[in-house]
Design a protein around this nucleic acid. Sequence first.
DNA 1: CCTTGACCTTCCAGTCACCGGAAGCATTAT
DNA 2: ATAATGCTTCCGGTGACTGGAAGGTCAAGG
Lengths: 133, 133
Amino acid sequence: MNIGAAEQASGLPAKTIRYYEDIGLLVPARRDNGYRDYGQTDVHKLTFLKRARGLGFSIEDCRALLSLYEDRNRASADVRALAHTHLHRIEAKIAELEGLRDALSSLVEACHGDARPDCPILDDLSGVPADSH
Amino acid sequence: MNIGAAEQASGLPAKTIRYYEDIGLLVPARRDNGYRDYGQTDVHKLTFLKRARGLGFSIEDCRALLSLYEDRNRASADVRALAHTHLHRIEAKIAELEGLRDALSSLVEACHGDARPDCPILDDLSGVPADSH
DNA sequence: CCTTGACCTTCCAGTCACCGGAAGCATTAT
DNA sequence: ATAATGCTTCCGGTGACTGGAAGGTCAAGG
């Protein structure tokens, strides 16, 4: 099938599919006219990639996952380790964002938000120590 | 003061400070020898930028915050609105990551993680419907 | 006075994971 | 025969920097 059909079948934009070929993630066959030719296995892999990317795995993670996917003899522990590492990254990111949210949220609450020029948000950003009452 | 001193004083790498000049965020004076010359106000603004970036504000947010910071007559409501929008973005990102975390976490838990080749993580990624027991 | 070394300058390229668009073939529909 | 898609490659841009090369400037030591 042509790249357009692969796009329909996998849900990945053609641009992205070509990009994945550029970086050697999924290199399809070519027809005589130079068109890319995707088979059923390729579409499966594209769908696989779409899901993995949707779960936030990096391209390099995906490369590893794909090769594990292709390896009929791999241990599930290998996959689990990768997913586990990624889970930790996600949790760390969540914790970081929650810290930001709390800091920002207390600033927003402290700011009366009217037409007066004094603003605790700018005060904090410019280094004025916060009122500790 | 030279850029090295500004780096010390603000905590921002010299590379970043030059970049901020490139994009017109903070353009310092120049000495006769071509060296950048940062004053006390510049250092304040650099510190301001470092804090705002640390809170996850984008460069364009920072540009707006800086101009509000410089405007003695601005209303605190303007700043609050910007911070509020950013707070919502952060909260949305947290919610998204929590969704990812939950999805990934249940996959990791479902995977026995031993030497056997069957693995629910890869099954899910490749589109095999999960067991619904 | 000369050299060494630290510090400064500009510019170019790379990061990550694509997206947009242009110029030019191939195929399909009318 | 022509027009409209669809495909190809290549170039450039995104955000927010970071690294490095090539070269100018400055302060200290011999």
